[in-house]
Design a protein around this nucleic acid. Sequence first.
DNA 1: CAAACGATTTTCT
DNA 2: GAAAATCGTTTGG
Length: 201
Amino acid sequence: MTLPASYYQHRDVVFIARDLLGKTLVTHIEGLTTSGIIVETEAYAGITDKASHAYGGRNTPRTSIMYEDGGVAYVYRCYGIYDLFNVVTNVRGNPQAVLIRAIEPQSGIETMLHRRCMERMHPTLTSGPGKLTRALGITTAHTGLPLDGATIRIEDSGFFYDDNLVETTSRVGVAYAAQDALLPFRFLVKNNPFVSKGKGL
DNA sequence: CAAACGATTTTCT
DNA sequence: GAAAATCGTTTGG
């Protein structure tokens, strides 16, 4: 079943980041359907988290969507090249989000290979936040879309990764966040080949 | 208005 | 392992 907006309005973004492992991210873009199982996530804990775009209550045209009720997409461009997909969580006025860092391709694999200019199946198809958005067709134009809609949605197939299959580490690429870079906010499925190669601290 | 900067990935050495 | 690619957003003057 498709996760309802209320699912994302849970107050603990770290819980949601962990719980999203095993859920299926589905997109229907340009008439093509693609999907994959979420195998790596990171939590960004709002105004108190130095690594978050909303740190200190910062509210800009780019990040204002994070201040809305949970259950919508926040997609932003990084390094001028890659679009990174986040799930907005918590309630209006509490800007938290979960970055989807990797998925295991499930359906629409031919479409994903074509979008990534690849010939054959390989873990690098979706093993990173910038790669999976390209494979799924997600761009910054999709910011604000509901996560239970026709274009983007996340489904619960009933499958859940047990705790002994999940590893928790610090987040990737946020060394600038000082002590908050040490927080155990990254979740990944052990030994899954589609998990990104990025390293925390 | 100018300038610096990434929640990354790919390519080259 | 190092460095380039590349540009919208944010910040400072």
